[in-house]
């Protein structure tokens, strides 16, 4: 009888743990997959030109990255009664967080078809171990490639950050 009681309590405790674990997994997976556009000043929906223009402290998030800038223009297409962003342009003070990397620049354009982000104007790419600066950065997300271009050799700078410098 005692054994049954303890085994019953154990099972109940296990069930509660599994329930909470499932709840958190579902909650966080849903929270992380949320896509959004936030704007501090205004957002203009132009249904004729199929675009959204956001102004003032813009934050854009999709399933790939989070981007911040002063202004954003996102073009979309209609597909199966749903609107999907195809091209996203970011203007001024652009910062893009992709996994453990941070891209910076004055202008960025993201194309959904090929999953490529192109940044121009005083660009930099920062990872936990190094910082690279140049004039143009092409980040190929699907193929995990980064191409950093510069106007001349002097403008291409590589900085090893503290973690790697110790090694």
């Amino acid at each position: 009888m005692v054994k049954l009681f303890f085994s019953g309590r154990l099972n109940l405790s296990l069930i509660i743990k599994i329930f909470y674990l499932s709840f958190f997994v579902i909650f966080f997976s849903t929270a992380n997959s949320e896509s959004y556009v936030k704007a501090g000043e205004s957002l203009i929906w132009d249904s004729e030109n199929q675009s959204y223009t956001a102004n003032g402290s813009v934050e854009f998030k999709n399933d790939k990255f989070v981007a911040f800038s002063d202004k954003m223009i996102a073009n979309y297409i209609k597909q199966n009664d749903e609107e999907i962003f195809t091209i996203v342009e970011l203007f001024e003070n652009v910062l893009i967080e992709f996994k453990d990397e941070i891209f910076r620049g004055n202008y960025a354009i993201y194309t959904r078809d090929d999953n490529i982000i192109k940044l121009t104007g005083n660009v930099s790419i920062e990872s936990p171990t190094r910082l690279l600066t140049g004039n143009e950065l092409i980040a190929d997300i699907d193929n995990n490639k980064r191409i950093l271009n510069s106007a001349n050799k002097e403008s291409l700078v590589e900085v090893l950050l503290e973690n790697n410098a110790d090694n």
Binding site: Y36, K38, A39, E41, W45
Partner: peptide, 10 residues
């Protein structure tokens, strides 16, 4: 066109 003012969350 629809212009949304203030803090906007979409």
């Amino acid at each position: 066109k629809i212009i949304f003012f203030g803090e906007v969350e979409f």
